[in-house]
């Protein structure tokens, strides 16, 4: 465990807890894309298939349970909670799941480390995580109202993957094993997707104006 990975995991943890807290306290999911949240639940499900088979560390197991629990709780709140669901903007959050899931699945079937179920699912989860934010970014562009918590949520989510890239650089130089190129590419693509959001987020923060994304 190195500082970059720990910082990345903590940033990721804070991002999902910020979102869960926002939805739980103000009982609203305005500006949040259910599609993205469902894709994240799928990412964690396909990523953590080894949760009960391979024990790596207490930290690893606890964090996996937290990520699974929080992502499914967020989906439940937006879908089922009698108050929260009313603030869900389903007319604007129209990104089709299969436009993202199918290409990632095909890609994982074509490009992977080993052709085993767990390995293909793990690779699928890497590709899916890289693009799962798209429905959320599309929704932000459409609704143009980015409240602070949603802005912070997307920012933290991007920051966590950027920290993971630093972690892979560090591990590349300090550990005998290697970081597979699939991990590199999926992680870099994911971080690049946030790049323009980061640009507008810093602009709004620097000029102390409300965050606006160009249409």
């Amino acid at each position: 465990m190195n500082i970059f990975r720990l910082a990345g995991d903590m940033t990721h943890l804070v991002s999902v807890l910020v979102l869960l807290l926002k939805i739980h306290t103000i009982k609203s999911c305005a500006g949040i894309s259910l599609k993205t949240q469902e894709l994240y639940a799928l990412v964690f499900t396909t990523r953590y298939l080894d949760l009960f088979t391979d024990y790596i560390s207490l930290y690893n197991t606890v964090m996996k349970l937290i990520f699974l629990g929080s992502s499914f709780s967020i989906v439940w709140y937006i879908r089922r909670h009698k108050i929260v669901r009313r603030s869900y903007d389903k007319d604007q959050d129209t990104f089709r799941h299969y436009f993202i899931v199918l290409p990632c699945l095909v890609l994982a079937l074509l490009i992977h480390h080993k052709f085993t179920f767990k390995e293909v699912m793990w690779t699928f989860s890497l590709y899916l995580e890289a693009v799962a934010i798209l429905p959320q970014l599309v929704l932000l562009q459409r609704t143009r109202n980015i409240d602070n918590l949603t802005g912070q949520y997307v920012f933290l989510l991007g920051a966590y993957r950027a920290l993971y890239i630093l972690n892979w650089i560090y591990r590349h130089y300090t550990e005998p094993h290697y970081v597979h190129w699939i991990t590199w590419i999926a992680g870099i693509v994911q971080t690049l997707l946030y790049a323009d959001f980061f640009y507008y987020y810093f602009q709004s923060w620097k000029n102390n104006v409300k965050l606006q994304l160009p249409a």
Partner: peptide
């Protein structure tokens, strides 16, 4: 061949 290192990551 060596195992990829990222299997212990989240």
């Amino acid at each position: 061949d060596e195992q990829p290192v990222t299997k212990d990551e989240l």
